[in-house]
Amino acid sequence: MAPRFKVSFFQYSKVFKNTTVISITILSFFLILFSKSDLFLINNIKSISSNIINPATYIISSPIKMASNIVNQYNQFKSLKFENKMLQEEIIRLKKWQTLAIQNSRENRVLKNLLQATDNNLNLVKTASLTNRNDALFSKLININAGYEDKIKINMSAINERGLIGKVVHTHRNNSRILLLTDPNMSVSVKTISDGSFSLLSGLGDDKYLVSSFIKGNKMPKIGDIVVTSGTAQIFPVDLLVGKIAKIKKDRFYVLPFVDFNNIDYVQIVTSE
């Protein structure tokens, strides 16, 4: 009769440890290799992290959020008097503009009827509020409280009252992630209002400027020109406000976005009709 082969607890635990270490290492490299693909596993990991872990981290970091709010309130209080004066001046200025805008709008409608032009009106999918932001360290991402249950899909445009914010890069049931215009991996095709020259803009990663990565026909626009989306890439609807050309260096121009990316509370998800 063959002797019984005894495996001690120590051996068991060593085998278990080695298996864990090797399997985690292999799984890590597998995830890194396929992270950009649309795998079910990767989508599920992203969904779990967005739906469960993201709110949990928000609750855990709430003391810092409170401190941040106190700093914000103090800053607002400090500049209250100055801001009040500025707002009074702005109200007077805007009232003049409003009268002019109403006149122009009527004129525009009449001219469109005469030309029988097709409208490029936007189709509002959903207005959502910002839940939290992950834009301080690497990528410029924000999270909103609306997902595919609200008919939000990947690549839809996000705007606010000032102009284009970015595009949807991930949707889950009740939340979505938006990649901001200022992200270096974001690219948007634009045209200038003055002469309609086309170019591609991408984020500089400094939270301030967008930089041209391609200019059609090497036709350099002027400083102060307003750029809007051209709609040629079929991602963003046409004529969404992007920003103003602030500086030109060598063969590139820098655009200052109209949107204040530090003060986003609500976003509208839109598509072209």
């Binding site: 981290t57 959020k65 700093v71 939290n132 301080a136 360290l137 530090n262 003060n263």
Partner: peptide
């Protein structure tokens, strides 16, 4: 570290 605070 994963939740950005604009003010600080």
């Amino acid at each position: 570290s994963v939740n950005s605070f604009v003010e600080i």
